[in-house]
Computed example of a mutant assay.
Amino acid sequence: MGRSHALSGWVAGLAVAPLVGLTSVAEVVPFAAATAGYALVPDLDHPGASASRFLGPLTGLISAVVRRFSGALYSLTKGPRDEDGTGRHRHASHTLVAAIGLGFLAASLGDRGKWAVLAVALAGLLLAVHVLGDWLLAAVVGAGAWTVFGAALPGTTAADALQAGLSGIGGWIGVAVGLGMFTHCLGDSLTRSGCPWLWPLPIRGETWYELRLPKLLRFRTGGWVERLLIAPALLAAGVLLLPGVYPFIISTISDGETTQSVHRIFSGLFSWNV
């Protein structure tokens, strides 16, 4: 489900960007890309996940630590009706607490310098590229070039624009991390297994209560619903939410000549002789 998680993070980033004051392509694209990458991070608790295999032994080691921590936390906090399982996958890293905590940690890195913030943003970007492909890297590089060269104010240098860009990242990187992780949890709540993202709130005797859709609406991870419905819908939304795309489509459709042309095409297609 890695690709769907990354796409959902991309869509969430595009949707939330205006709410945190990001409106231009140069701002929105890096934010959405980082959100897409951090939408994969909760699955560090699974050894076969994209995030766990991303940097080979390094992320593999991080994955092992996350799994052990998650298992220990589950043993300490499980309620009387929680399952008698290991608590390693879809537990500690799949909670709102983890999303908020890591989001605040990423935001606090601004105190350690702009390059620390940039490192966090690049980690999210490269993880997203690892799953979604090089097109995302090209998009972010293009947006970054626009920030440095195209958006520089008269009388400023490229170095000044770059510094401004790094300062801008510090303003949103914590939101990107937290939003991406929480988006992952919401995605898992659509599946048959559900996701206990409201931990440690006890529900029906369970501290790790799996939130999920009604039975008829749940889908299997990697099944046809995800591949044929969920992923294409996310991809379409990921294009429509790019700055300027939806208004352009609406203005094009509402144009009188375009509407008449489409009408003539369809009239011709369905004007059969009987």
Rank of each mutant, 00 (worst) to 15 (best):
E226L: 01
F69L: 06
D82F: 07
F248M: 08
T86S: 15
T86F: 13
W146D: 11
V120W: 06
A6N: 05
W146L: 15
G37T: 03
V131N: 07
R227D: 01
A99V: 05
G187T: 02
S261H: 09
T156L: 12
L201C: 09
V97Y: 07
S93E: 07
L76F: 03
R67G: 03
H263G: 03
A36V: 09
L44V: 04
V66F: 04
R68Q: 09
Q163N: 15
F219L: 08
V25S: 15
T157V: 08
T252Y: 13
V20N: 12
D45L: 03
P247N: 02
A6C: 05
L44H: 04
L153Q: 13
G71W: 00
G165D: 02
V129D: 05
V25K: 06
G180Q: 01
L55T: 04
G223S: 03
L22Q: 11
Y209H: 10
G194M: 05
G103P: 07
P200N: 02
A152P: 00
A6V: 00
L241R: 12
A36G: 10
L96Q: 00
L211R: 04
L109Q: 10
R90F: 01
H91Q: 08
G85N: 08
G187F: 13
L162F: 05
I230S: 02
K215D: 09
V120L: 03
F182W: 11
A159E: 00
L102M: 06
M1V: 15
G85A: 13
L61V: 10
T258K: 03
R68W: 08
L76A: 14
K215N: 06
D45K: 04
H130F: 10
L179E: 00
L240G: 10
G187D: 05
G165I: 09
F182I: 11
V175R: 12
